[in-house]
Structures are given as C-alpha cells and as structure tokens.
Design a protein around this nucleic acid. Structure first.
Lengths: 184, 184
DNA sequence: ATCAGATGAGACGTTGATGTCTCATTCTTT
DNA sequence: AAAGAATGAGACATCAACGTCTCATCTGAT
C-alpha cells in the first residue's frame, strides 16, 4: 500500500523540515507508528532522508509540469508555479535545509534538472521583457526558492496563514516591497 | 586574546552555516587548530553553537544600529541595513538554519528584540507610504531575512559574487523581479 | 640557553542514537 | 472462531561522536 509509505513520508517532512536532526523516535511518533515499523518501511535513517528528498524533488518537478512554466507569458507562468508549489512549500523547505542530500549524485542530478528549468523560465521572462535584466536569472531562481522555503517554514510555525501564502509569495517576489509610485 | 576566539568563531560559522551537523573535527580543522584546543576555548559543542548564535545576534543588532533603521526614509534605511548586513550574511544564514538555537530562552529573547526592530522598520515604512500595505510587516520582515540568509548561502557556495550581493538583495527585495512598466 | 606556557596528536571511556532481534498483542482474512 | 500477518514494545549490541586525559613538541619570553 503506497498510502502508508506516503503518509509516513509526509509526517517525516513535517518534522525534518524544521529539525533536520530529529531522532527516528520522534519521526515515528509523528507518523503514528513505532520505530520498529518505521524500520520495516525504510531500511534506515539514510534511506528515509533520501526518500524524502527524492519525493520532494518529484513533487517539485510535478509542480513545474502542472504549471506549464514553458508556455505563455512568463509572469503568468510564475504565478501558476507559485500556486502549484505552495502546497509543497514544506517539502521545499526541507530540500533547502538538508544540504547533505546533494552529496548523493542521483539526488543532485535531479535537482540540477529542476533548477535549470526554473532558470530557463527566468531567462525566458527576461527575453520577453517581463523580468528585470539587471538581476541574473540564477539569482532570481535562487531567491525564488529561498522565498518558497521561507513560506514553508513560516506556515509550519504559524507565522503565515496558508491561505495568504501564495499571494504573499507572488506579490513580494514579483512586485517587491516598495509601493508602486503610480499607485496612490 | 579575543582575536583567537573570534577567528575560531568565524571559521565555525563558515562550516556550520552550510552543514549544521558538522563534526568538531571538521570545525577545528577549518579553524586551523586541533580538536583539543577547540575544547580548551569552548567547553563543548553546545557552548560553541551557543556562542556562534550569540555572536550572530550581536552582529545583527550592531548592523541595525549602524544602519540607523529608525531614522529618515524607510527605503533608505533598508538600503543602509542591507549594506550593513551583507558582510555578515553567512552569520544570518547560520541563524536561519539552526532552529535549535531558539530553545535557549536567552538567545530567543535576543532574537525577538531584533526581529521586532526590523518589523518596526517595515511598519514605519508602510505608514510613510513607502512599503506596500497589502503585505504584512511580519511577512516582509521574514522574507527579508530569508533573502539575507539566501545571499549568505549563495555567496559561500560561489553562486553569487560578493560584490553583487548587496545590489542583488536590495533590488530584488525592494523592486521585485518584474520589470517596471514605465522603464523601457 | 632555559623554562613556562600553549598546542597537537592520540588514547580512552562515556554517551546516545541507531540497527537488529524477540515476543506479546492486535488486526485481518477466511 | 481460527490462522496468519502486521504492529508495538522493549531488550540488546554496535558504532560514531563527544568529552577528558596524557605526553611530546613547539613557541616565546627572560
């Protein structure tokens, strides 16, 4: 049953995104199972972390797919990406915090692919005249991911309401903190 | 000699901001001293982490002071803050990643104070009509810190040139990723 | 040159998390 | 109801990092 595995992974993300060094006891308790069963599902801590990372990257890739980031106006594409990504913001927060994941060449390659896709979106937007060209596409991509992770943390800790998160993220990233001079 | 302690702390930040679970061996090697000497300076791992956190918060507070964030135009104040903060971006990255730090009530209180100061800056800017009011001051504050930490990581890993970091940070945060419609 | 202090290298015991095991209990299926 | 599978609880060994110690070496001051 895949549901079981997935629910455990979900719980693991909830704990690990906030405290990457959490003990297996804690993760098992959060998942509502015993440590023994956790070991029956995942061979060990390393495998669990790896699986959470792989899941996160798969969901990230799926969000890029559903948002169709290669189609149409780059700004609209980014807004679609925000909507698709916000439900998995906690997963992105985990990916951002667990740097040790990228020692694994397979995980690292998967990440490089998705990162390149996001960079391509920004590059396309710059060529369309939609995004600023004074800021490199690499930096835009990195900053965007930082903010997505930040949303994940903020929502998890109750500092940001989930229903505000997509709006807050898109508006700040696209429009910045400054009030537009022409809007009174 | 305070210089020695500080240089060790500096090296510790360099390692811990990227890999919070780094062994003491690694930190000692990065500082160019032996594990024994590291133990002579700091009673143990916990004390070291704590000290790095306290140093980070002190530097953060100092940056808020030198930027005079309570004076004048809020936008100019934020730009001053960026300039003052960027040299210690790695330290902020450490503070952002090491959530376990905030279990310590003393550290946590120090953080709350600085965070309130930043929030006050954004609130003031909103009252001045400088910052957007659709985004809460709390979210602006949090997002700003996320980006500062992101700059710290990006610089450390060579993905962002140090000389670009202040500009990239201030421009993206204040103006957003979108090209202004009136600027051709 | 000598001596005091500091440092590095390494050994050693301790501790805590992990991985594996067993066994009783519960749930499912027939 | 009975058999089988899955789970939980706990015991146990292992292992890696930590904290402490000793001793040889190095540095710097007198």
């Amino acid at each position: 049953m895949a549901t079981d595995r997935d629910s455990v992974l979900e719980a693991a993300v909830g704990v690990l995104s906030r405290r990457p060094t959490a003990h297996l006891d804690e993760i098992a308790r959060a998942a509502g199972i015993s440590r023994a069963t956790l070991h029956r599902i995942f061979p060990g801590r390393e495998a669990l972390i790896r699986e959470v990372g792989a899941t996160g990257l798969r969901r990230f890739a799926a969000a890029l797919d559903t948002a169709e980031i290669d189609s149409g106006d780059a700004q609209a594409a980014l807004r679609r990406l925000v909507d698709a990504l916000v439900p998995d913001a906690a997963l992105c927060a985990f990916l951002a915090g667990e740097n040790q994941l990228y020692d694994d060449p397979e995980i690292n390659e998967l990440w490089e692919i998705q990162d390149a896709r996001v960079r391509a979106l920004f590059l396309r937007g710059q060529q369309q005249g939609v995004f600023r060209i004074e800021l490199s596409a690499g930096w835009l991509s990195e900053a965007f991911f930082d903010l997505v992770a930040g949303v994940g943390w903020a929502v998890q800790d109750g500092r940001l309401a989930p229903r505000d998160s997509a709006y807050s993220l898109a508006e700040l990233f696209l429009g910045g903190a400054l009030r537009s001079p022409d809007q009174p």
